[in-house]
Amino acid sequence: MTTLAKVPVTVVTGFLGSGKTTLIKHLLANPNGKKLAVLVNEFGSEGVDGDILKSCADANCPAENIVELANGCICCTVADDFIPAMEQLLSRRVRPDHILIETSGLALPKPLLKAFDWPEIRSRITVDGVIALADAEAVAAGRFAPDPAAVEAQRVRDENLDHETPLSEVFEDQIACADIVLLTKADLAGAAGLETAKAVISAEMPRRVPMLPIVDGAVDARVILGLGAAAEDDLAARPSHHDGEDDHEHDDFASVVIDLPEVSDIDALVASVQQLVREQNVLRAKGYIAVSGKPMRLLLQAVGERVRHQYDTPWGTKARQSKLVVIGEQGDIDEAAIRTGLGL
């Protein structure tokens, strides 16, 4: 049977390493009876998050319902990438009940919402809600700006100048567009950190929205799916630093993909990544690593100096090829120095 009802779409946004993929993995495992589809967009030519999610595919969200768009912000490549990808998901033999869009950590959500007005899809889908994830521990420490104290001091000296960094603009745009804010890594932030993070976010919000602390992406699907926000019709309530502009640029950020040989000492690799964060101002690093003598691939993810790693799935018939995606601000990323730091 066909239906005229629009398919609801939830946009999951959040800064680099805030836990978007972890949240979507939890929703895939606990869909509350819904058949899901996922569109995942990454910054950089090598996608990691899409591969992570495909390893979680099941009857409620088969692998064919997980579509990955890498090397390009979907809100900047609407006609070429976003619209065809959405049409692909909507044409599945069994139409999904709900579509999740995981934006890249550098994406501005409001231009994406505007894309839902395109004739090809506007009668078929609606933005059920925008979920913004914020790393509570990082926000409490002011890490969304390289040096918040220095920025504030400059602002006090000259109130007519905008001294905000690209990182803080991305953070503020994501928060301002949200229907619900999830404060991730609440266990690491602690009670005091959560209160600080809530205060910081509340100061940036154009309107009052719920803020929920979560750990490891665990939140009831009933809380964040089915909001009925129709966010594409509510753009005026979601201000952006880029309002009035035709598009936005990602030239403030850069990514490099590093091929690595098999690793025998994981601790040494972690130490090298942490040193790169300190010396090269790396924002995010993620990738799959082949470990000598191990049949399973190692998923490594770094947010600042916090590096997490775990074995996820066997390599199987895939080539045992280690790749690490490194993302940072333009001018800070030196590929040669990164390769040297990793012993290449």
Rank of each mutant, 00 (worst) to 15 (best):
T2D: 13
C75R: 04
V94Q: 09
R320T: 05
S292P: 04
L69H: 03
T21Q: 12
L100K: 10
V303G: 09
A290K: 07
R222I: 01
S292G: 07
D179I: 00
G105V: 06
I327R: 08
D247Y: 05
P31L: 04
R207L: 01
L194P: 08
H241N: 11
L28A: 02
F15Q: 11
E305S: 14
Q330T: 14
L299Y: 08
P210N: 13
Q310W: 07
R207E: 08
G304W: 07
I333T: 12
G316H: 12
R339S: 08
E152M: 11
N160Q: 12
E169F: 01
D117Q: 13
N32I: 00
K286M: 01
Q174E: 01
V9D: 03
R222L: 05
S202W: 10
G193K: 07
E329N: 11
Y288Q: 05
T103S: 14
L283W: 01
D259C: 00
G47S: 15
P210I: 02
A221H: 06
D117H: 15
Q280L: 02
G343P: 09
G193E: 08
N281D: 15
Q280W: 00
K198L: 05
A231T: 05
E87A: 04
T196D: 12
E164Y: 03
M296W: 12
S240I: 01
L194I: 07
P111T: 07
R122K: 15
A186C: 08
T21M: 04
V94S: 09
A337S: 13
A186S: 15
A138L: 12
Q275R: 11
I66H: 04
M205S: 15
